[in-house]
Design a protein around this nucleic acid. Structure first.
Length: 151
DNA sequence: GCCAACGTTGGC
DNA sequence: GCCAACGTTGGC
């Protein structure tokens, strides 16, 4: 089983919204590396941190699971969507997404500042790499265990 | 294939 | 709002 981290701006889609709908296709990813993690790396049952970005206190706020194999992200075919991609054809979708399912909220968020305080113990962590902008990224088993122990 | 220009991300 | 860092685009 692999571990992941999904970033989301809470004003767009928060952990509370996922809690309400229980399950949601993780659409709108328009970065090839992030897409490849979803397409090639994820398996149903994998666990992922839910991270709030671009907000007053960025950090990990909950846990979700991968609920299905990657499939076409339908927003790429919708001209009215912000994520519309006119170059992508239904017979060869360029963008994929997995379904994520709500597991739980953390008792309290693990802030980015706190994660940075533990940079030495976390080692090479995709989230805190300089200049990182990936919205879907891998977490090692060791990082996962260490971070959860910070809760 | 190079690389400048541009748009986006996301912390601060 | 600022701006560093990055990915993508497109001219050449």
């Amino acid at each position: 089983m692999n571990h992941w981290l999904f970033k989301s701006e809470p004003e767009e889609f928060s952990i509370d919204m996922l809690k309400q709908v229980r399950r949601e296709p993780w659409g709108g990813v328009r970065n090839y590396q992030a897409r490849n993690y979803m397409r090639d790396g994820m398996q149903p049952g994998d666990l992922a941190f839910f991270y709030h970005s671009n907000c007053a206190e960025p950090g990990i706020v909950g846990i979700c699971s991968i609920a299905g194999a990657a499939k076409a992200d339908m927003s790429q075919f919708d001209p009215a969507s912000d994520y519309f991609d006119p170059a992508s054809k239904p017979e060869a979708p360029r963008w994929l997404c997995v379904d994520v399912a709500y597991k739980r909220k953390l008792r309290r968020p693990i802030t980015l500042a706190r994660l940075q305080d533990h940079a030495a113990q976390l080692g090479d962590f995709a989230l805190t790499r300089r200049g990182n902008r990936l919205s879907v990224l891998p977490v090692t088993q060791a990082q996962w265990d260490y971070i959860l122990a910070l809760e």
